[in-house]
């Protein structure tokens, strides 16, 4: 009897957990499904066809997006920007966060709070000074100028997050490495970074998404079409007055895919169960 009651409780607990998770999951997946559904329709049917699954699949929108000559260029540009900015941030921010968390030097707190405070002044106010600055540095309409700016944008948040994780982490392995004669840089690379992998995965996704979806700063600092990121193409699909919704949705779906794939690739690093020692040697 008692066992039955216990089991019933367990089952109902499991059921309610799944009900909650399922409900939330449904609202999350619905927009993606809706986007996909619309991108298989034509401009005539998208507003009139009320069926949940479109009556006729129409692949023309995807073909239209993919054969758009500039889409390829924009896509490549976004890949370049995202890869550069994310790698730069991971290296620079983890170095800084490691130092803030583990090492001692004068003015440490000052510098740390300086980074944190920088997050709080909203950027919309700064486009004129920023442009003037980039112009003085002779970096207008160059990839490197845009990459440096975007790196700077993501830096503060990444340092804060990484420092939190480093603070929380056990120092045993680092101590062992130090006793083995490993230098500070060596410990950072061989011990601290692999241990902070979940946090780094979060930072990679956060910054990748940030760069991938950015287009205002890109248009402030870049001029040439061949340097523009992917979001610019999506802006072009949304005409000033007329919007070709199915093509826009196809474009948005294609644009969202790489980030979702990146998330899938990263999330297994968030999960424990990997042997940490593998890269330490």
């Amino acid at each position: 009897m008692a066992i039955n009651k216990y089991r019933a409780m367990k089952v109902s607990k499991g059921f309610s957990i799944h009900l909650l998770l399922g409900l939330v999951a449904f609202t999350c997946i619905f927009p993606l499904f809706w986007m996909l559904r619309c991108s298989f329709m034509t401009l005539e049917t998208v507003f009139t066809d009320k069926s949940i699954i479109p009556t006729a699949f129409h692949f023309g929108n995807f073909i239209k997006v993919l054969t758009e000559e500039k889409f390829g260029i924009y896509f490549m540009n976004s890949v370049i920007y995202t890869a550069s900015v994310v790698s730069a941030i991971v290296i620079i921010a983890s170095l800084a966060a490691y130092s803030f968390s583990r090492l001692r030097f004068p003015g440490k707190n000052f510098f740390f709070y300086m980074f944190v405070a920088a997050m709080m002044i909203p950027l919309p106010g700064s486009f004129v000074p920023l442009y003037v600055l980039i112009n003085k540095l002779n970096l207008v309409n160059t990839r490197i100028g845009y990459i440096l700016c975007m790196t700077n944008v993501g830096l503060s948040m990444s340092i804060l997050l990484l420092k939190t994780f480093f603070d929380k982490m056990n120092t045993d392995l680092e101590d062992a490495a130090r006793i083995d004669g490993c230098g500070k840089l060596g410990i950072w690379w061989h011990v601290a970074l692999p241990l902070a992998r979940p946090a780094i995965a979060v930072i990679v996704i956060f910054n990748a998404l940030n760069v991938w979806n950015e287009f205002i700063l890109a248009q402030l600092l870049l001029t040439d079409t061949r340097l523009m990121p992917l979001q610019k193409a999506l802006m072009e699909f949304q005409g000033a007055h007329s919007v070709d919704y199915p093509v826009l949705m196809a474009g948005l779906t294609l644009a969202a895919m790489p980030i979702i794939l990146l998330y899938l690739a990263m999330q297994k690093h968030i999960v424990k169960g990997f042997s940490y020692g593998a890269t330490a040697g």
Binding site: I92, L95, A96, Y98, S99, F115, I159, K184
Partner: peptide, 9 residues
């Protein structure tokens, strides 16, 4: 260690 971040900043 924090120099690159500080320079960029």
């Amino acid at each position: 260690f924090i120099l690159p971040a500080v320079i960029l900043f």
